[in-house]
């Protein structure tokens, strides 16, 4: 009797599962890999419901570092990517993986530091100079170190300083060919390369009273969005080098035939539409504007 009952239950469960998946199949769903910052800042929670209202498209969001998101796009695991590493995005389109880069918005990076400010960079508007001072005073610096958009930006900033950078090369094999992975970073006990997301890196920096480079959105979220906010404060901001543009790219159907290009393009077009752009401009977190629309002036 018991066995019969469990058999019935399993059948019912399986059927429920099948019915729900079947009903999902008829909806307009696309998969999007994006950076942690768009999700963590809460922007997507505002945009996606409006998108669904306007176009009926539902977006499955997979939040990762920019490197991994781009990789997802290359492999065709997703239909669209929404990331911030302009040069790499342009390369991505040039290589034929994406059809076009739509400039959606930008925000900015800030250099955070502990109250004590051992490097003495408070109020600076020169990012490269600030980093140089951090290096000179051997003040602890927490780096994302995960090949993300923020990490890409940080490396570019270090290259603008005269700080001695060490390059490590790892040789691996890809498609039977040897490929080299380069890793450029300052060397020293003060430089901590974490390989973690922005939130974790901020927590780490706060815990160790270190400096770090962060996007403003995640910083505000961690500073004001929690009961027990972090102690770090903004020490260097508003340098043109610290601008952080976001782009959305539908994956090309030619390279990856199974992607839902039509829906992805509809999504990208919607993001640069006046409505979405004004949503972005009006999005405020704890009273501060996070993103500035780029498609509509």
């Amino acid at each position: 009797m018991k066995r019969k009952l469990s058999l019935i239950m399993i059948t019912v469960l399986l059927m429920v599962g099948m019915i729900t998946t079947a009903s999902f199949g008829e909806e307009k769903i696309i998969k999007m890999s994006t950076t942690t910052s768009t999700q963590a800042s809460g922007l997507l929670d505002i945009l996606l419901p409006e998108l669904e209202k306007d176009t009926g498209i539902k977006v499955k969001v997979i939040a990762k570092g920019t490197g991994a998101a781009i990789r997802d796009g290359k492999d065709g695991n997703v239909d669209v990517i929404f990331v911030h590493a302009k040069q790499r995005e342009e390369q991505f389109v040039k290589d034929g993986f994406g059809t076009k880069r739509y400039a959606v918005m930008h925000n900015d990076f800030v250099i955070l530091g502990p109250e004590k400010d051992p490097a003495g960079i408070k109020g600076s508007h020169d990012a490269a100079d600030s980093l140089a001072k951090i290096a000179r005073t051997q003040s602890m610096f927490a780096s994302r170190g995960d090949d993300s958009g923020t990490h890409t930006k940080e490396r570019a900033l270090w290259e603008k300083t005269s700080v001695l950078l060490k390059s490590t090369t790892t040789t691996i094999v890809k498609k039977g060919k040897e490929t080299e992975i380069n890793f450029v970073q300052p060397e020293g006990k003060w430089y901590m390369s974490l390989g973690q997301g922005m939130g974790k890196t901020i927590t780490f920096a706060d815990e160790k009273q270190a400096y770090t480079l962060s996007d403003r959105g995640t910083y505000i979220k961690y500073k004001h969005g929690r009961k027990d906010g972090i102690d770090l404060a903004v020490f260097c901001e508003k340098d043109s080098l610290l601008s952080n543009p976001y782009g959305v790219i539908p994956i090309s159907k030619e390279k990856r035939p199974h992607v839902k290009y039509g829906l992805a393009k509809e999504f990208a077009d919607w993001l640069v539409s006046p409505k979405a752009q004004s949503l972005i401009a009006n999005y405020k977190l704890h009273g501060e504007q996070l993103f500035y629309p780029d498609a509509v002036k």
Partner: peptide, 17 residues
């Protein structure tokens, strides 16, 4: 943790290695 990181970076080959 190095493997988890390489996965996050999209460097699967290195992760599996």
């Amino acid at each position: 943790t190095a493997m988890a990181l390489e996965y996050d970076k999209g460097e699967f080959t290195l992760a599996v290695a």
